[in-house]
Computed example of a mutant assay.
Amino acid sequence: MTPGVAAPIAELSDRELLALHVAGDDHAFAELFRRHKDRMWAVALRTVRDPELAADCVQDGFIAAFRRAESFRGEAAVTTWLHRIVVNACLDRLRRRKPTTELPEYDLADRHDHYASTEVRLDIQEALAKLPEGQRAALVLVDMHAVPVAEAAVILGVAEGTIKSRCARGRAALAQHLGLTPGQRPAEHD
């Protein structure tokens, strides 16, 4: 690149875009949104299970990120920061809904063949509904989205050990709700 000539906005890093946004650039945040909206929507959809509610959560999250961009301290990746904001927007929306809010339908069939039947997935969804919010959020990120424990800790604003214990307790509670002993797989319904 020639000195003194600015790089096209699409070539800038997420951090550079966020810094430009904070400095008043009118296009930088739009590029961040374009890059990450689909991934954030996927996380929101898995968390709230309703496409319209997921879209609202993504909108809430990106508006919050737009307004609070100067609060980004650079201690984590911009995508981790955005994940945290969007997950928090999802949790806020779920808290405000009726207690009968359905949980996401987790497609565990992709990871484990023994979860392939609809009945088993519904049993698992029902069991997930019984978990405390913190355990459910940790399991969604770590087990459903394969987010590393360290990144999930940043997203949820807790220590790595807390994520590990929430996942372990959540998995144990799921097994108990499903009537399984440790290591046992759910049987397919006929």
Rank of each mutant, 00 (worst) to 15 (best):
Val142Pro: 06
Asp123Met: 06
Val87His: 11
Pro148Lys: 12
Ala152Leu: 13
Phe72Cys: 03
Gln125Pro: 01
Tyr115Lys: 01
Val86Met: 06
Leu156His: 05
Asp92Gly: 14
Leu45Phe: 14
Thr100Ser: 15
Leu141Met: 09
Leu20Phe: 00
Phe62Lys: 01
Val120Glu: 08
Thr101Trp: 14
Asp60Lys: 09
Val149His: 09
Arg67Tyr: 05
Thr79Met: 03
Leu156Arg: 00
Val142Gly: 05
Leu32Glu: 02
His83Trp: 12
Leu20Arg: 08
Ala129His: 14
Asp26Glu: 15
Glu105Cys: 10
Glu151Phe: 08
Glu31Thr: 00
Ala150Cys: 05
Tyr106Met: 13
Leu17Gly: 00
Glu16Met: 12
Leu122Pro: 01
Arg15Tyr: 07
His21Val: 05
Gly74Trp: 01
Asp92Glu: 15
Ala76Lys: 01
Arg95Glu: 14
Glu151Asn: 11
Asp60Arg: 10
Asp60Phe: 04
Arg49Glu: 05
Val78Glu: 00
Glu31Ile: 01
Lys98Thr: 15
Asp143Trp: 12
Val86Trp: 04
Leu128Asn: 04
Ala42Met: 13
Val58Ala: 04
Thr47Leu: 11
Val149Ile: 12
Ala127Lys: 11
His114Asp: 13
Phe62Gly: 00
Phe33Gly: 00
Arg96Ser: 15
Arg96Asn: 15
Val48Asn: 10
Val87Glu: 07
Tyr106Arg: 10
Cys57Ile: 04
Glu126Trp: 08
Asp50Met: 03
Leu94Pro: 09
Glu75Ile: 11
Arg136His: 14
Arg67Trp: 10
Ala54Lys: 01
Arg111Asp: 13
